[in-house]
């Protein structure tokens, strides 16, 4: 018999509990949805976003594009990114130099120092 309980050595984990919670949430969400406004129509003015009377932008303009996301995160650790991103130069010689450099580094640690 396949058991779903998973002993990790320090504790145990059973995905069925999680699935149960997940299912419960789905049922709750359905109940909320079920009690919603029944007079909703899929066409007409009420499906349009309301921006204080201003005209809504075109479909393409509304979408928040990928490069806007996590701007704050990259800005916060800019010092790190300014060092790491330019290291990926795309020059083949640098790639080979990194490879040989890391190999010599491991050589020093593993054979010379130990």
């Amino acid at each position: 018999m396949l058991s779903t309980t998973f002993h990790t050595g320090a504790g145990y984990w059973n995905p069925l509990v999680w699935l149960g919670v997940f299912l419960l949430l789905l049922v709750l969400a359905y109940l909320f949805w079920f009690r919603g406004e029944s007079g909703y129509r899929r066409e007409g003015e009420q499906t349009k976003p309301f921006l204080s009377g201003n005209r809504a932008p075109a479909r393409g303009e509304m979408h928040l594009r990928a490069s806007h996301l996590y701007w704050g995160f990259t800005e916060a650790i800019r010092g790190y990114y300014e060092r790491v991103v330019p290291a990926h130069t795309g020059v083949l010689n640098d790639y080979l130099l990194w490879f040989l450099g890391v190999m010599s580094f491991i050589l020093v640690i593993m054979v010379v120092i130990r």
Binding site: R59, G60, L69, Y70, F73
Partner: peptide, 19 residues
């Protein structure tokens, strides 16, 4: 997880693009 949220949002979410 954060970075895949970014992919999910920018690729699948949002209004249908005209193109």
């Amino acid at each position: 997880l954060a970075s895949f949220v970014k992919v999910f949002h920018s690729v699948f979410m949002g209004p249908e693009l005209p193109e």
